[in-house]
Protein backbone atom coordinates (compact mmCIF):
# COMPACT_ATOMS: atom_id res chain seq x y z
CA UNK A 1 0.00 0.00 0.00
CA UNK A 2 2.82 2.32 0.73
CA UNK A 3 6.55 2.38 0.63
CA UNK A 4 8.84 2.17 3.56
CA UNK A 5 9.96 5.69 4.15
CA UNK A 6 11.52 6.05 7.56
CA UNK A 7 10.29 8.82 9.76
CA UNK A 8 13.53 10.65 10.06
CA UNK A 9 12.45 13.66 11.99
CA UNK A 10 10.54 11.96 14.74
CA UNK A 11 12.10 10.68 17.89
CA UNK A 12 12.80 7.14 16.94
CA UNK A 13 13.81 4.31 19.18
CA UNK A 14 16.05 2.89 16.51
CA UNK A 15 19.49 4.41 16.37
CA UNK A 16 19.57 6.23 13.05
CA UNK A 17 20.41 4.01 10.07
CA UNK A 18 21.20 1.01 12.25
CA UNK A 19 20.56 -1.80 9.79
CA UNK A 20 18.57 -0.41 6.94
CA UNK A 21 19.04 -3.30 4.55
CA UNK A 22 17.99 -6.05 6.92
CA UNK A 23 14.34 -5.07 7.34
CA UNK A 24 13.98 -4.55 3.61
CA UNK A 25 15.32 -7.99 2.90
CA UNK A 26 13.08 -9.46 5.52
CA UNK A 27 10.13 -7.65 4.08
CA UNK A 28 10.93 -9.13 0.69
CA UNK A 29 11.18 -12.60 2.12
CA UNK A 30 8.03 -12.09 4.07
CA UNK A 31 6.15 -11.09 0.99
CA UNK A 32 3.88 -13.94 0.25
CA UNK A 33 3.96 -13.35 -3.47
CA UNK A 34 7.69 -13.96 -3.55
CA UNK A 35 7.26 -17.19 -1.64
CA UNK A 36 4.56 -18.40 -3.97
CA UNK A 37 6.59 -17.58 -7.05
CA UNK A 38 9.51 -19.56 -5.64
CA UNK A 39 7.28 -22.56 -4.96
CA UNK A 40 5.71 -22.37 -8.41
CA UNK A 41 9.10 -22.13 -10.11
CA UNK A 42 10.34 -25.04 -8.02
CA UNK A 43 7.39 -27.15 -9.10
CA UNK A 44 8.11 -26.18 -12.69
CA UNK A 45 11.67 -27.37 -12.48
CA UNK A 46 10.73 -30.62 -10.77
CA UNK A 47 7.95 -31.33 -13.21
CA UNK A 48 10.05 -30.64 -16.29
CA UNK A 49 12.36 -33.41 -15.13
CA UNK A 50 9.56 -35.70 -14.04
CA UNK A 51 7.54 -35.56 -17.22
CA UNK A 52 8.85 -34.96 -20.71
CA UNK A 53 5.42 -33.77 -21.76
CA UNK A 54 5.31 -31.04 -19.11
CA UNK A 55 7.30 -28.35 -20.85
CA UNK A 56 5.56 -28.71 -24.21
CA UNK A 57 3.64 -25.82 -25.66
CA UNK A 58 0.42 -27.81 -25.71
CA UNK A 59 0.65 -28.54 -22.01
CA UNK A 60 1.49 -24.95 -21.11
CA UNK A 61 -1.46 -23.76 -23.14
CA UNK A 62 -3.81 -26.27 -21.57
CA UNK A 63 -2.64 -25.38 -18.09
CA UNK A 64 -3.00 -21.68 -18.55
CA UNK A 65 -6.44 -22.14 -20.06
CA UNK A 66 -7.34 -24.10 -16.97
CA UNK A 67 -6.60 -21.37 -14.49
CA UNK A 68 -7.38 -18.34 -16.62
CA UNK A 69 -11.13 -18.34 -16.21
CA UNK A 70 -10.98 -19.35 -12.58
CA UNK A 71 -8.70 -16.35 -12.25
CA UNK A 72 -11.67 -14.07 -12.87
CA UNK A 73 -13.59 -15.74 -10.08
CA UNK A 74 -10.70 -15.46 -7.69
CA UNK A 75 -10.45 -11.72 -8.37
CA UNK A 76 -14.04 -11.23 -7.27
CA UNK A 77 -13.62 -13.53 -4.30
CA UNK A 78 -10.46 -11.80 -3.10
CA UNK A 79 -12.05 -8.38 -3.19
CA UNK A 80 -15.08 -9.72 -1.36
CA UNK A 81 -12.87 -11.39 1.26
CA UNK A 82 -10.97 -8.14 1.77
CA UNK A 83 -14.22 -6.34 2.45
CA UNK A 84 -14.98 -8.97 5.08
CA UNK A 85 -17.44 -11.12 3.11
CA UNK A 86 -17.38 -14.53 1.50
CA UNK A 87 -19.32 -16.13 -1.35
CA UNK A 88 -20.05 -19.82 -1.50
CA UNK A 89 -22.22 -19.49 -4.58
CA UNK A 90 -19.52 -18.77 -7.18
CA UNK A 91 -19.58 -22.28 -8.68
CA UNK A 92 -23.35 -22.42 -9.08
CA UNK A 93 -23.71 -18.86 -10.27
CA UNK A 94 -21.05 -19.44 -12.91
CA UNK A 95 -22.93 -22.51 -14.06
CA UNK A 96 -26.18 -20.58 -14.03
CA UNK A 97 -24.68 -17.90 -16.29
CA UNK A 98 -23.75 -20.62 -18.78
CA UNK A 99 -27.10 -22.30 -18.60
CA UNK A 100 -29.16 -19.13 -18.90
CA UNK A 101 -27.09 -17.76 -21.78
CA UNK A 102 -27.23 -21.14 -23.52
CA UNK A 103 -30.93 -21.52 -22.95
CA UNK A 104 -31.66 -18.01 -24.25
CA UNK A 105 -29.49 -18.68 -27.28
CA UNK A 106 -31.32 -21.91 -28.02
CA UNK A 107 -34.60 -20.07 -27.81
CA UNK A 108 -33.42 -17.86 -30.66
CA UNK A 109 -31.78 -14.88 -29.02
CA UNK A 110 -28.55 -13.47 -30.37
CA UNK A 111 -25.67 -15.04 -28.34
CA UNK A 112 -24.15 -11.66 -27.43
CA UNK A 113 -27.46 -10.38 -26.17
CA UNK A 114 -28.06 -13.64 -24.36
CA UNK A 115 -24.66 -13.35 -22.69
CA UNK A 116 -25.30 -9.80 -21.62
CA UNK A 117 -28.61 -10.88 -20.14
CA UNK A 118 -26.97 -13.75 -18.27
CA UNK A 119 -24.29 -11.46 -16.84
CA UNK A 120 -26.99 -9.00 -15.85
CA UNK A 121 -28.84 -11.79 -14.09
CA UNK A 122 -25.71 -12.73 -12.15
CA UNK A 123 -25.24 -9.11 -11.18
CA UNK A 124 -28.81 -9.08 -9.95
CA UNK A 125 -28.15 -12.21 -7.92
CA UNK A 126 -25.13 -10.52 -6.36
CA UNK A 127 -27.18 -7.44 -5.60
CA UNK A 128 -29.84 -9.66 -4.08
CA UNK A 129 -27.24 -11.25 -1.77
CA UNK A 130 -25.82 -7.83 -1.02
CA UNK A 131 -29.28 -6.68 -0.03
CA UNK A 132 -29.74 -9.54 2.40
CA UNK A 133 -26.34 -8.97 3.93
CA UNK A 134 -26.40 -5.19 4.24
CA UNK A 135 -30.08 -4.40 4.71
CA UNK A 136 -31.49 -7.48 6.40
CA UNK A 137 -28.28 -8.08 8.30
CA UNK A 138 -27.67 -11.74 7.55
CA UNK A 139 -24.22 -13.25 7.27
CA UNK A 140 -22.55 -13.67 3.88
CA UNK A 141 -21.93 -17.31 4.58
CA UNK A 142 -25.59 -18.18 5.06
CA UNK A 143 -26.95 -16.01 2.27
CA UNK A 144 -24.48 -17.30 -0.29
CA UNK A 145 -25.01 -20.87 0.88
CA UNK A 146 -28.71 -20.48 0.13
CA UNK A 147 -27.97 -18.90 -3.26
CA UNK A 148 -25.52 -21.68 -4.03
CA UNK A 149 -28.28 -24.23 -3.64
CA UNK A 150 -30.93 -22.14 -5.39
CA UNK A 151 -28.72 -21.32 -8.37
CA UNK A 152 -27.76 -24.96 -8.77
CA UNK A 153 -31.41 -25.93 -8.64
CA UNK A 154 -32.21 -23.34 -11.28
CA UNK A 155 -29.50 -24.78 -13.53
CA UNK A 156 -31.03 -28.21 -13.32
CA UNK A 157 -34.50 -26.81 -13.80
CA UNK A 158 -33.60 -24.98 -17.02
CA UNK A 159 -31.78 -27.91 -18.55
CA UNK A 160 -33.66 -30.83 -17.14
CA UNK A 161 -30.31 -31.91 -15.76
CA UNK A 162 -28.76 -32.48 -19.20
CA UNK A 163 -25.97 -30.41 -20.78
CA UNK A 164 -27.18 -28.03 -23.48
CA UNK A 165 -25.29 -28.59 -26.74
CA UNK A 166 -24.54 -25.25 -28.31
CA UNK A 167 -22.88 -26.38 -31.57
CA UNK A 168 -24.64 -23.66 -33.47
CA UNK A 169 -22.89 -20.84 -31.62
CA UNK A 170 -21.42 -18.50 -34.26
CA UNK A 171 -17.65 -18.82 -34.67
CA UNK A 172 -16.98 -15.23 -33.66
CA UNK A 173 -18.61 -16.02 -30.32
CA UNK A 174 -16.69 -19.24 -29.83
CA UNK A 175 -13.59 -17.25 -30.62
CA UNK A 176 -13.57 -15.66 -27.17
CA UNK A 177 -13.26 -19.08 -25.61
CA UNK A 178 -11.27 -20.95 -28.20
CA UNK A 179 -9.42 -18.49 -30.41
CA UNK A 180 -5.97 -17.04 -30.20
CA UNK A 181 -4.20 -13.86 -31.14
CA UNK A 182 -1.00 -15.17 -32.62
CA UNK A 183 0.11 -17.84 -30.18
CA UNK A 184 -1.78 -16.43 -27.23
CA UNK A 185 -5.27 -17.70 -26.44
CA UNK A 186 -7.93 -15.00 -26.12
CA UNK A 187 -8.85 -16.41 -22.73
CA UNK A 188 -5.37 -15.59 -21.49
CA UNK A 189 -5.60 -12.09 -22.90
CA UNK A 190 -8.90 -11.49 -21.11
CA UNK A 191 -7.42 -12.94 -17.95
CA UNK A 192 -4.36 -10.71 -18.07
CA UNK A 193 -6.42 -7.61 -18.74
CA UNK A 194 -8.63 -8.33 -15.73
CA UNK A 195 -5.74 -9.20 -13.44
CA UNK A 196 -3.69 -6.15 -14.31
CA UNK A 197 -6.68 -3.83 -14.15
CA UNK A 198 -7.97 -5.10 -10.82
CA UNK A 199 -4.56 -5.45 -9.23
CA UNK A 200 -3.80 -1.86 -10.15
CA UNK A 201 -7.16 -0.60 -8.97
CA UNK A 202 -6.95 -2.44 -5.69
CA UNK A 203 -3.54 -1.02 -4.97
CA UNK A 204 -4.11 2.49 -6.13
CA UNK A 205 -7.69 3.68 -6.29
CA UNK A 206 -9.51 5.41 -3.48
CA UNK A 207 -12.57 3.34 -4.37
CA UNK A 208 -10.88 0.06 -3.52
CA UNK A 209 -8.96 1.46 -0.58
CA UNK A 210 -12.36 1.83 1.05
CA UNK A 211 -12.77 -1.93 0.66
CA UNK A 212 -9.68 -2.43 2.81
CA UNK A 213 -10.91 0.04 5.42
CA UNK A 214 -14.29 -1.64 5.60
CA UNK A 215 -12.86 -5.12 5.96
CA UNK A 216 -10.19 -4.11 8.43
CA UNK A 217 -12.60 -2.52 10.92
CA UNK A 218 -16.11 -1.85 9.74
CA UNK A 219 -16.95 0.43 12.62
CA UNK A 220 -13.80 2.49 12.30
CA UNK A 221 -14.58 2.78 8.59
CA UNK A 222 -18.06 4.06 9.35
CA UNK A 223 -16.48 6.50 11.79
CA UNK A 224 -14.25 7.65 8.96
CA UNK A 225 -17.25 8.56 6.86
CA UNK A 226 -17.14 5.51 4.62
CA UNK A 227 -20.46 4.03 3.57
CA UNK A 228 -19.54 0.55 4.60
CA UNK A 229 -22.84 -1.01 3.61
CA UNK A 230 -22.49 0.35 0.13
CA UNK A 231 -18.95 -1.00 -0.07
CA UNK A 232 -20.05 -4.46 1.01
CA UNK A 233 -23.04 -4.36 -1.32
CA UNK A 234 -20.77 -3.51 -4.24
CA UNK A 235 -18.10 -6.11 -3.52
CA UNK A 236 -20.78 -8.78 -3.18
CA UNK A 237 -22.32 -7.73 -6.47
CA UNK A 238 -18.97 -7.51 -8.24
CA UNK A 239 -18.10 -11.06 -7.26
CA UNK A 240 -21.29 -12.39 -8.86
CA UNK A 241 -20.85 -10.25 -11.96
CA UNK A 242 -17.43 -11.76 -12.49
CA UNK A 243 -19.04 -15.20 -12.11
CA UNK A 244 -21.33 -14.21 -14.99
CA UNK A 245 -18.39 -13.19 -17.17
CA UNK A 246 -16.54 -16.40 -16.33
CA UNK A 247 -19.63 -18.48 -17.11
CA UNK A 248 -19.94 -16.92 -20.56
CA UNK A 249 -16.27 -17.53 -21.35
CA UNK A 250 -16.62 -21.14 -20.25
CA UNK A 251 -19.66 -21.52 -22.47
CA UNK A 252 -17.77 -20.17 -25.46
CA UNK A 253 -14.88 -22.46 -24.68
CA UNK A 254 -16.84 -25.65 -24.22
CA UNK A 255 -19.52 -24.93 -26.81
CA UNK A 256 -22.03 -26.26 -24.34
CA UNK A 257 -23.71 -25.35 -21.08
CA UNK A 258 -23.38 -27.86 -18.29
CA UNK A 259 -25.75 -27.60 -15.35
CA UNK A 260 -23.35 -29.45 -13.09
CA UNK A 261 -20.34 -27.33 -13.96
CA UNK A 262 -18.29 -25.95 -11.08
CA UNK A 263 -19.41 -28.25 -8.30
CA UNK A 264 -17.04 -27.53 -5.44
CA UNK A 265 -15.40 -24.74 -7.40
CA UNK A 266 -16.09 -22.23 -4.61
CA UNK A 267 -13.72 -24.12 -2.33
CA UNK A 268 -10.88 -24.01 -4.84
CA UNK A 269 -11.45 -20.32 -5.34
CA UNK A 270 -11.55 -19.51 -1.65
CA UNK A 271 -8.50 -21.68 -1.07
CA UNK A 272 -6.59 -19.87 -3.82
CA UNK A 273 -7.48 -16.46 -2.41
CA UNK A 274 -6.45 -17.52 1.08
CA UNK A 275 -3.19 -19.09 -0.11
CA UNK A 276 -2.58 -15.79 -1.87
CA UNK A 277 -2.91 -13.84 1.34
CA UNK A 278 -6.57 -12.95 1.74
CA UNK A 279 -7.78 -13.17 5.32
CA UNK A 280 -11.17 -14.59 6.20
CA UNK A 281 -11.37 -11.80 8.77
CA UNK A 282 -11.20 -9.20 6.06
CA UNK A 283 -8.81 -6.31 5.60
CA UNK A 284 -6.04 -8.07 3.77
CA UNK A 285 -5.41 -9.79 0.47
CA UNK A 286 -3.96 -9.10 -2.94
CA UNK A 287 -4.96 -9.94 -6.49
CA UNK A 288 -1.45 -10.95 -7.48
CA UNK A 289 -1.22 -13.30 -4.51
CA UNK A 290 -4.61 -14.81 -5.20
CA UNK A 291 -3.75 -15.38 -8.86
CA UNK A 292 -0.52 -17.08 -7.82
CA UNK A 293 -2.66 -19.18 -5.50
CA UNK A 294 -4.85 -20.25 -8.42
CA UNK A 295 -1.82 -20.95 -10.55
CA UNK A 296 -0.27 -23.05 -7.80
CA UNK A 297 -3.39 -25.11 -7.25
CA UNK A 298 -3.93 -25.64 -10.94
CA UNK A 299 -0.27 -26.46 -11.50
CA UNK A 300 -0.47 -29.06 -8.79
CA UNK A 301 -3.61 -30.58 -10.31
CA UNK A 302 -2.18 -30.83 -13.78
CA UNK A 303 1.14 -32.13 -12.49
CA UNK A 304 -0.60 -34.84 -10.54
CA UNK A 305 -2.66 -35.69 -13.60
CA UNK A 306 0.48 -35.88 -15.72
CA UNK A 307 2.07 -38.14 -13.15
CA UNK A 308 -1.00 -40.37 -13.27
CA UNK A 309 -1.90 -39.83 -9.66
CA UNK A 310 -5.47 -40.82 -8.93
CA UNK A 311 -8.04 -38.02 -8.82
CA UNK A 312 -8.92 -38.99 -5.31
CA UNK A 313 -5.41 -38.30 -4.15
CA UNK A 314 -5.48 -34.92 -5.85
CA UNK A 315 -8.08 -33.55 -3.50
CA UNK A 316 -6.16 -34.77 -0.50
CA UNK A 317 -3.01 -33.13 -1.75
CA UNK A 318 -4.73 -29.86 -2.61
CA UNK A 319 -6.32 -29.70 0.81
CA UNK A 320 -2.97 -30.33 2.45
CA UNK A 321 -1.39 -27.52 0.45
CA UNK A 322 -4.06 -25.15 1.69
CA UNK A 323 -3.46 -26.18 5.26
CA UNK A 324 0.30 -25.88 4.89
CA UNK A 325 0.10 -22.45 3.27
CA UNK A 326 -2.18 -21.07 5.92
CA UNK A 327 -0.10 -22.55 8.71
CA UNK A 328 3.15 -21.12 7.41
CA UNK A 329 1.51 -17.76 7.04
CA UNK A 330 0.14 -17.91 10.53
CA UNK A 331 3.60 -18.43 11.93
CA UNK A 332 5.13 -15.69 9.82
CA UNK A 333 2.48 -13.30 11.07
CA UNK A 334 2.98 -14.33 14.64
CA UNK A 335 6.69 -13.76 14.44
CA UNK A 336 6.00 -10.30 13.13
CA UNK A 337 3.62 -9.56 16.04
Amino acid sequence: MSGDTKMDNTVNLTPAGSSDSAPLLKRMLRMRETGLIVIILGLFVIMSFASPYFLTWANMRAMSMAFAVDGLLVIGMTILLISGGIDLSVGSVTALAMVIAGWLFLSGIDPWVASAMAIALCTAIGAFMGFFVTRVGLHHFIVSLAIMVIARGACLLFTGGRPLGLYTLPPEFKFIGQGSIGPIPIVIVIFLVFVIAFDFMLRRTTMFRKVFYTGSNEKAAAYSGIRTKKVIFLTTTLCSTLCGVAGIIYMARFGSAQPTFGLGLELTIIAAAVIGGASLNGGSGSILGAILGVILLSLVSSSLALLDVSVYWQDIIRGSILLAAVTIDHYLNKRRG
Binding site: M1, S2, R209, F212, Y213, S216, N217, K219, A220, A221, A222, Y223, G283, S284
Partner: peptide, 11 residues
Protein backbone atom coordinates in the same frame (compact mmCIF):
# COMPACT_ATOMS: atom_id res chain seq x y z
CA UNK B 1 -13.70 2.41 16.02
CA UNK B 2 -10.81 4.85 16.03
CA UNK B 3 -8.09 3.11 14.04
CA UNK B 4 -7.58 0.27 11.59
CA UNK B 5 -5.15 -1.83 13.61
CA UNK B 6 -3.88 -4.03 10.78
CA UNK B 7 -3.52 -1.29 8.16
CA UNK B 8 -0.43 0.89 7.75
CA UNK B 9 -0.13 4.11 9.72
CA UNK B 10 -0.21 6.21 6.57
CA UNK B 11 -3.41 4.55 5.38
Amino acid sequence: DGVFLDLPIAA
